[in-house]
Amino acid sequence: MISISMLSLILGIALLVTGIFAMLTRKNLIKIVIGFSIADTGTHIIIVSLGYLKGRTAPIIDSAVSAANAVQKVVDPIPSALVLTAIVIGLAVTAVMLSFVVEMYKKNKSLSIDDYQELKW
C-alpha cells in the first residue's frame, strides 16, 4: 500500500507544476495570480508531507500523547511551523500582486497580458 505522505508529495508536486503551467500559459492577469496561488498551495503540501511520520499524531501534548513518550508519538513540528507563517505571507503577497493588477488595469484598461508591451523583448 502506498503511503499517505508519498501520495501527498505527488499531489503537491502536481499542484505546483499545474500552477506554474497556468502562470506561463494564461493571458488574463487575474488567472496568472490564481496560478501563483495554486503553486503556493502545492509547495505547502510538499513541505508538510515531508514532515509526516506514519501512524503518528499532531505535536500537541494532550490525552493522546503524554509528555514522557512524546518523541515517539508526534510528527515533525518544524515543517508545520514553517508552512503556517508561509500561508500568511502568501496571502499578503497575493494582495500586493492583485493591487498591481488593479493599478495596471487603471492605466491600460485591459486585463490581457498581451496589451502590456513595455517590457517585452
Partner: peptide
C-alpha cells in the same frame, strides 16, 4: 497529515480571505 495548526490557517486564509481579496480585486 497531523498538522491541525496548518489546517486552521489554510481553512481561514486560503479559502476565506484569499478568495475575498481576489473578489475585491
Amino acid at each position: 497529515l497531523g498538522s491541525p495548526d496548518v489546517a486552521m490557517t489554510e481553512a481561514t486564509i486560503g479559502s476565506g480571505l484569499t478568495t475575498v481579496v481576489f473578489l475585491f480585486a
